[in-house]
């Protein structure tokens, strides 16, 4: 059926709203909103006027009162006597060492400004990139003139947050073989969930491995989960695998000539299909309010492939519409299986 129009969605099922990390032993409190765990406070809403509570993040106490008022829309958290509100949606807050996927917004004389979904644009200085061929030298005026041959507006790159300035703008670097320009793949952005320490509903969370390779029937594909909620899924490049064993002393030899290429390699149709499938599934995962990490993606991917095979052999398998429907079905099956 080409067109599917549904009635407005019912409130999200209670299972997704359950907050596993809220302190239950605080039963002696008499907060008006603490009765139900799924309660959401809105900006300007009075949380409590009891002076025994302390204000935390996302709250505000007007002068001369002891009333605690929420400043963001989100879930209420209590840590002993500290009240904080965890926003439902927030921009990515950069931290040193984060692996991020970014898009070049503008090119300046000695640096690029990069959109990393943070409140402010990040900067990538010319001195923080690898030169083609891995030559280690000072950046000259010639490099400054040729700055667009490395990255130009709109280009995608994967980088690491090197330092944070006082105003919380991030400075990035790509001085590793893992980082650099992105090609041969598809970019997906997940909105409003990037990089929380506390697990928000859905989105990428900081984990041990942000980049991994997924084995598919058509071939291997690389997935880069930026902590900022930007995701890049690409065809697996063989050369990158070979480069991993190279020691730092032979860096110049290993940095391939295609480091700053904006030309795609030949990609098999099967791989194209698997890349779009993974991207669709990740979007579906977020729509279902589930967290996005390596384990989850691998499991859901397998489930989705199985589902498709079943559909092809048996005919119509009951499932919802679109990406969310597929992911919901797969998740339900995974739960059943254990």
């Amino acid at each position: 059926m080409p067109v599917s129009i549904l009635p407005p969605s019912a409130p999200i099922a209670a299972q997704h709203l359950k907050r596993e990390d809220s302190d239950e032993e605080m039963s002696d409190d008499d907060l008006p909103t603490s009765t139900s765990k799924s309660s959401i406070v809105t900006p300007g809403e009075t949380i409590t006027s009891d002076p025994q509570w302390m204000r935390g993040h996302g709250t505000y106490v007007p002068a001369d009162t002891s009333t605690i008022i929420s400043t963001v829309a989100g879930h209420l958290h209590k840590t002993n006597k500290l009240l904080s509100v965890q926003p439902l949606r927030a921009r990515y807050n950069p931290e040193i060492g984060d692996l991020v996927v970014g898009r070049i917004v503008s090119v300046q004389t000695k640096k690029w400004t990069v959109d990393i979904a943070a409140p402010m644009l990040a900067s990538l200085p010319l001195s923080a990139i690898n030169l083609p061929g891995g030559i280690l030298r000072r950046r000259t005026a010639v490099d400054e003139l040729n700055i667009r041959t490395f990255f130009s507006e709109g280009d995608l790159l994967v980088a690491e947050v090197q330092s944070l300035h006082q105003d919380n703008t991030a400075s990035l670097h790509t001085r590793s073989l893992k980082y650099g320009k992105l090609r041969n793949g598809l970019f997906t952005s997940l909105s409003g969930a990037g990089g929380g320490i506390l697990s928000r509903r859905g989105g990428v969370v900081r984990s041990k491995r942000q980049t991994f390779t997924l084995n598919t029937a058509a071939g291997e594909i690389d997935v880069i989960l930026g902590v900022n909620g930007y995701i890049f899924i690409s065809a697996h490049s063989k050369t990158a695998q070979e480069q991993k064993d190279v020691s730092i002393t032979r860096l110049e030899e290993s940095v391939s000539e295609t480091l700053y290429s904006s030309q795609n390699d030949e990609i098999q149709p099967g791989v194209l299909r698997e890349i779009t499938r993974v991207s669709t599934l990740i979007k579906g995962l977020v729509a279902c309010g589930s967290r996005v990490d390596e384990d989850m993606i691998a499991r859901v991917y397998e489930g989705a492939v199985e589902l498709e095979a079943e559909e092809r052999s048996l005919g119509g398998v009951e499932r919802g519409v679109g990406a969310k429907g597929v992911v919901e079905t797969v998740l339900a099956r995974l739960e059943m299986g254990g």
């Binding site: 080409p2 067109v3 599917s4 129009i5 549904l6 009635p7 407005p8 969605s9 598809l186 149709p269 194209l272 299909r273 779009t276 499938r277 991207s279 669709t280 979007k283 519409v321 679109g322 990406a323 429907g325 597929v326």
Partner: peptide, 19 residues
């Protein structure tokens, strides 16, 4: 064609909710 949402065919509309 492989669409960006790979559950959709070339004639499929993006799913929507209406009231």
């Amino acid at each position: 064609p492989i669409r960006l949402d790979n559950t959709k065919g070339p004639r499929d509309f993006r799913s929507m909710r209406a009231e």
